[in-house]
């Protein structure tokens, strides 16, 4: 590959600074907008999209697992403690270590990254879902059964809607956490905003890591705000003034 068109390459190669931007002349500047503009479409935007994909997959799978565990534990209380112990154990392992410990099993792949990210969502999502379901007032449950709801109707029409705010609170924490941790995934797979941050750390030119780090924080804050709005939209009853 490297020998493909050696002679046709007429432009000088300036790998450290991206395509000849104004920053080349001033490599000591803290931040250079010109670099961001020049590298948006080939570096930052793909990294951002990969980061979003990493996050969405982790949250999707994590929610599905946590949701089924919480629904089961809601009926069978004894399940709660073992699930909390195991997910709490996973949660405590530092991410850099966990990513590496998975490598012998799944290699330097996106799967490794996702398994680690999913494992960090479980404790948060499980606890909040269970707490939300458990917080449904006893009299509401009693009235629902007394009016002839089946167990399934009780769950879907009463318990889950009432647990939504707690579930969303968990979702918000999980999403922000995953966005933050997904940067560490760069140590096993060269994807997401971790890649430009890591790349930036290897050089004295700081614009790349500041831009990518900033994007990551913005993505977290934006997602959090989006979830707040979504929660308000689907639980209008939680907003009305109480007398």
């Amino acid at each position: 590959m490297a020998f493909a068109l050696p002679l046709a390459q007429s432009d000088p190669v300036i790998p450290e600074f991206g395509r000849g931007s104004s920053c080349v002349r001033d490599p000591d500047a803290l931040f250079c907008w010109g670099w961001v503009k020049d590298n948006w479409s080939d570096t930052l935007q793909p990294a951002l999209l990969q980061h979003i994909a990493l996050t969405l997959i982790a949250i999707g799978i994590g929610s599905a697992i946590a949701f089924s565990l919480a629904l089961t534990a809601h009926r069978r209380g004894w399940l709660t403690t073992p699930v909390v112990v195991v997910t709490g154990f996973l949660y405590t392992i530092p991410s850099l270590a966990l990513f590496q410990l998975l490598v012998p099993f799944t290699g330097l792949t996106r799967t490794t990254a996702e398994i680690a990210l999913v494992s960090y969502t479980l404790l948060i999502l499980f606890r909040n879902m269970l707490a939300g379901l458990a917080a449904v007032p006893a009299e509401v449950r009693d009235a629902a059964i007394g009016m002839g709801m089946t167990a399934r109707q009780l769950l879907w029409k009463v318990e889950l809607p009432l647990a939504l705010p707690a579930i969303f609170a968990g979702l918000r924490i999980a999403v922000v956490t995953v966005i933050s941790l997904a940067t560490i995934a760069v140590f096993v797979v060269n994807e997401g905003l971790g890649a430009p941050i890591y790349n930036g750390l290897q050089q004295t030119f700081s614009t790349e890591l500041i831009a990518a780090g900033g994007l990551c924080v913005l993505l977290a804050l934006f997602s959090d705000a989006l979830l707040v709005l979504l929660q308000r939209a689907i639980s209008p009853w939680a907003r009305v003034a109480r007398r």
Partner: peptide, 22 residues
């Protein structure tokens, strides 16, 4: 049970209205 309960009105002290419904 569910069928029976649907034809029996049920009122309890704490009422148990569903907070998420109008």
């Amino acid at each position: 049970p569910a069928e029976l309960r649907r034809e029996i009105g049920y009122v309890i002290q704490q009422i148990g209205l569903f907070p998420h419904q109008t």
